[in-house]
Amino acid sequence: MLVRLILQKILMLLAVVWAAGTLNFFIPRLAPKNPIAEKLTQMAGTSGVDPTKIQEMSEAFNAKFGLDRPLWQQYLSYLGDMAQFDFGYSITKYPVRVADLIAAALPWTLGLMISTTLIAFVLGTLLGAAAGWKRNSRILQILSPLIMVFSAIPFYLLGLVLIYFLAAKAGWFPISGGHGIVSIPEWSWEFAREVLHHAVLPSISIIIASIGTWAIGMRSMMVNVQGEDYMTFAEAKGLKPWRLFLRYGMRNALLPQATALALYFGHVVNGAVLVEIVFSYPGLGSLLLDSIKLFDFPTIYGIVFILTLTVAISMLAIDLIYPLLDPRVRVGGLNG
């Protein structure tokens, strides 16, 4: 049963990756003109770029995309390249490969996304659990609507507000970037401190806006759990309130939160892209913006593919952890 479940999830992952690759292939071809060829002729027209280099590039692109072959052959070889993370060359930074550009930016994006997701998940879940448990607490009654309203605001708008008040006006944090302009990335305490200092505002804007999402779900689950018979029984047994809260309340209310976590990754990728742009954070979002501005299509496609893959893999990871949390799935009691 468990094996079947895992196979099903892996099939889902492959389908998502295939869908992303296929959309990547066909969307540019829906356009009346080939954007890459157009960009290259445009670059050849404007002076400043060596014509022989342009010639070399367009040959490389023609060989890469095999524009003379039938469409289905192009499609198959494209899928093969995607599977090997071969996105070709960047147009604007030729001869740098797109995969290398992405590899340099990916750690920043993943670092920001993973750390903020974890912090927001823990804080939001604890807050929601407390709000559902102690429904009479004054502080929580004031705090929870406020936090829910914050969950409606897109990350990057909060980011802009934070930059204005805490960076531009108060000067506590840098306005943009992932590290100092002059410093060179290295493994040192000094550099690590700088990176953390630059990461504070982008992280806060993601965390504040996502705490609410977790708190809302946890609060209503906690309220539901309290009505269960096993809670009444545990209370009657005379268990300590803390034990009741953690082992009986939290433990059972946490399950739907884990499912929500899987769905949340797509949301956080959408949001993190714009947060990076707002903060000029050196991750994939900023790389995406630069590529859009310079019409560097191979890089745009590469980023879209990698980010979709990131979402799909995170979802698979959650799906695989889920049976460990919920014994019923292991035995095959839930939807199979």
Binding site: A19, I27, A31, G266, N270, V273, I292, F295, V304, V311
Partner: peptide, 23 residues
């Protein structure tokens, strides 16, 4: 339903970026 689920996994803004960049 399966197809909708697959498409829901795809981060919307990224594909909108591609469509918007092309048109």
């Amino acid at each position: 339903t399966w197809m909708i689920d697959v498409l829901l996994t795809v981060p919307a803004i990224l594909f909108l970026v591609m469509i918007a960049a092309v048109v």
